[in-house]
């Protein structure tokens, strides 16, 4: 067919930043993938695609996991691969039905390492209440991959009571987070061992389905939008929301739950905790009348004790995330550019 598609992606090479979840990733997706693969479902750019099948709405999502080190305090790549995909379904308002898993293995890795990861995957799937129903295995030459890569796809059934999307978000809506942010990103950074820093910290990787379920039960009619702040952290997730809904997002900086160890490590490394990934938390935008009920429901659910109301949607500044400090200062919270790197000098 002789249709011409205009591609706005002009970067000559793929750099690491294109995979970091920030602006470069967005440019790649919107400038290359979207125009070439364009269809109404993809254009929604949601964590999970919504498919209408008969009376039901199915959610379909896929995610590839490349993490170094493969095992880290509080989790491992296979757990991430299960929980990450289950969580993408959860923030679409869906309960997971089934997962697929594709393994790309580097020739030469120990079979015990692989076994440990498959065992971890089985445990994680059981915890998340889902089964891995199909899969694939490929082995590449030694040096062509970094140990184990895993891609998982998840299929879920969307709760009929919810209708989510940036388009539903209105000024006055409240922004909730399910618990302290940044644990995973800082844990991984420290576990790489390059920094000679130690902290009593574990990845927060876990299925968020029970917490999301609690919010749906308590506040379904007022629930507008959810997102798990993985790559790029809270800052990138909310910047995407601000852009997509056209309103301003105002955060109350002091209200954002961040563990002391995460704050301390970020302070030392010159990172903004709002740019650091979480793997077991989610953000929810809730209509003002339902915010209290949603927060109470989170607090009453095991693992949701640290939930907090951290901000609200305002008409201005449009398409911008602003953080207000306790003393009346304000700053623009931008999306992450590339991977977070420690600053020294």
């Amino acid at each position: 067919m002789a249709t011409t598609v205009t591609l706005s992606f002009r970067d000559p090479r793929i750099e690491l930043a294109h995979g970091a979840g920030g602006k470069a990733t967005r440019r790649l997706i919107e400038g290359l993938f979207l125009p070439l693969l364009a269809n109404p479902v993809l254009l929604e750019l949601a964590d999970a695609a919504l498919l209408h099948v008969g009376e039901s709405r199915l959610a379909l999502t896929t995610d590839a996991f490349v993490v170094k080190p493969l095992r880290f305090p509080g989790g491992s790549i296979a757990e991430l691969a299960v929980f990450g995909t289950v969580n993408d379904l959860a923030v679409a308002g869906a309960r997971p039905l089934a997962l697929s898993a594709a393994f790309i293995l580097e020739a030469g890795i120990g079979s015990d390492l692989l076994q440990a990861e498959v065992e971890a995957m089985a445990r994680a799937a059981a915890e998340a209440g889902v089964t891995v129903v199909t899969g694939d295995t490929k082995v590449v030459e030694h040096g062509s991959a970094d140990g184990i890569y895993i891609a998982t796809t998840g299929l879920g059934l969307v709760d009929p009571r919810v209708s989510l999307g940036a388009g539903q978000v209105r000024p006055g809506d409240q922004i909730l987070v399910s618990g302290p942010v940044g644990d995973h990103g800082v844990t991984i950074l420290l576990a790489r061992g390059d920094l000679d820093l130690e902290a009593d910290l574990e990845s927060d990787t876990r299925p968020i389905t029970p917490l999301v379920q609690a919010v749906i039960e308590a506040a379904a009619p007022g629930l507008r939008w959810m997102r798990d702040p993985t790559r790029g952290g809270v800052a990138s997730a909310l910047n995407e929301l601000a852009r997509d809904c056209g309103h301003g997002i105002v955060l109350f900086e002091e209200a954002i739950p961040i563990r002391e160890a995460v704050r301390g490590a970020c302070e030392i490394l010159g990172l903004d905790p709002l740019h650091v990934a979480s793997e077991g938390q989610f953000l929810a935008v809730v209509a003002p009348d339902y915010a209290e009920a949603a927060l109470a429901a989170l607090h009453a659910t095991p693992g949701g004790e640290g939930a907090a109301l951290i901000g609200e949607v305002r008409p201005e500044p449009a398409r911008t995330v602003l953080a207000l400090t306790a003393y009346g200062g304000s700053r623009v919270v931008d999306m992450l550019v590339g991977d977070p790197l420690p600053r020294i000098c």
Partner: peptide, 10 residues
């Protein structure tokens, strides 16, 4: 960049 770039909005 952010501060001024979006000064109008802020």
């Amino acid at each position: 960049y952010d501060y001024i770039h979006r000064a109008a909005a802020v």
